[in-house]
Nucleic acid binder design. Structure first.
Lengths: 241, 241
DNA sequence: ACAAAAGTGTTTAACCTACACCCATGT
DNA sequence: ACATGGGTGTAGGTTAAACACTTTTGT
């Protein structure tokens, strides 16, 4: 065991906030947005039936980012992937059974909210609050990715990769709420993100919903690339506000 | 080129704050603490004379953390390494010349300040402010590690791995200042770290220095393991102070 | 007494949350 | 008119930077 040579795989934890219709007591149906991960179900042993992260072997002539993008293109429409970043490497020699050792590099991928890419039949979105039986060490990988995402929501503009191009603040509030796992106040969200220069109004206005209500101003993210917006929590250089 | 199989190396960016004697105009010599990286000089081509990060090939039966610790034991006394964490993977197929492709996983290592481990003759500490010619892609690796360290100084207790067991606040101020790259106010440093529960007084008191002055209270870090002390920059759960 | 170093107190400025209140639209 | 959702105003709390001031030691 583990005598052969070593190979390298890339695995992506791809998140999207998706609205799930939900029955309420009153009979009225309500949309409840939740954070979801993209998983596919293993058809063969080992671990047949367990759910895996998308990814696969790294080719000899590609770097890892290229590899992840290539492999995801088979599962998700590539253009929908708004952000991709490295997470950790898992290098336990026995993390997967078999003759050749497999080192895994994990990635965090984000898909904007309204997109609904075509999925192969063995592939499905799963709410992170109710994960199925996961293959190998893929469970901890999801946990790790989620922690990273939650942290970055606070001090970067990473929300751009989860939100549509244009959105009302209530929609953004739902996305932040689903990602962070707790309710978020739209009022304060607006003020924080505007002050930081993360979002601005487009000038256009959404038409008001089916049940009336004031029409919402539309916003969009200023950058579509990751940017740190709150650099120093403490101990910033002197003179710097 | 790059047709053979692929191998994996681990590379460590090991930092320590070291005091360098410095001549001042007045003739008085002054200790100036600076952040240093551990590097060794290549004796052979490729890139003979350039400076490299310590590390080397990953063995078949060890995971990466084990490998880094083992390889560093040859350069630095292992017990002196107070913290070690994964950074990024560098996977450009042509990042190093040669027949076999080499993927590099980088690590951040920290050595507490007063320690002076024995070094092999080709190995030396270099101030990060004046790095020599670096081999391959090792330059960006140092930059990346440093950025990570600076960020973590603000929202974690990572300073424990750079400071001695017991220290006066002025000493800690120097360590923080050297690491962050700008002067730090000892007063505020104390208040921030005490409020967060990162450091506490030991009860003992240092004897005052050669030129008089009030003797300093000694402090120590509460934990000797990485802990996040400022979890949410914004968007914390409702009701949480 | 005086210098040097350590520690305390106070002011000011951000930043963020919470919540009450006002505004615009559809039925 | 009224319900519904969007937006503004404002008060309060927490955090940290800046800096003047006091305390404790050695010469």
């Amino acid at each position: 065991m583990s005598n052969g040579n070593t190979s390298h795989e890339v695995l992506a934890v791809v998140f999207q906030v998706r609205s799930v219709a939900e029955q309420v007591k009153t009979g009225a149906r309500k949309e409840k947005p939740q954070l979801n991960v993209l998983l596919w179900q293993r058809a063969k042993d080992p671990q047949q039936g367990a759910w895996s992260l998308p990814g696969g072997r790294l080719r000899n002539d590609e770097d890892m980012t290229t590899s992840v993008r290539r492999q995801l293109a088979e599962k998700v429409d590539l253009r929908e992937l708004a952000h991709l970043e490295q997470l950790a490497v898992f290098s336990d020699p026995h993390r997967v059974p078999g003759n050749t050792r497999v080192i895994a590099s994990t990635f965090l991928g984000l898909v904007p909210s309204p997109a609904t890419p075509e999925l192969p039949p063995d592939t499905r979105w799963h709410p992170v609050s109710a994960l199925p039986l996961m293959a190998f060490d893929h469970g901890p990988m999801v946990t790790h990715a989620r922690a990273r995402l939650v942290a970055k929501m606070s001090y970067t503009n990473i929300g751009f990769a989860l939100a549509p191009k244009e959105f009302a603040l209530s929609a953004l509030r739902d996305i932040y709420g689903a990602t962070l796992g707790h309710p978020v106040d739209a009022t304060n969200l607006q003020r924080v993100l505007v002050r930081r220069g993360v979002i601005t109004q487009t000038g256009t206005i959404a038409q008001s919903g089916r049940s009336g209500g004031r029409p919402a101003a539309l916003y969009h993210f200023v950058d579509s690339q990751l940017r740190v917006t709150e650099e120093f929590a403490a101990f910033r250089p002197p003179g710097q506000p």
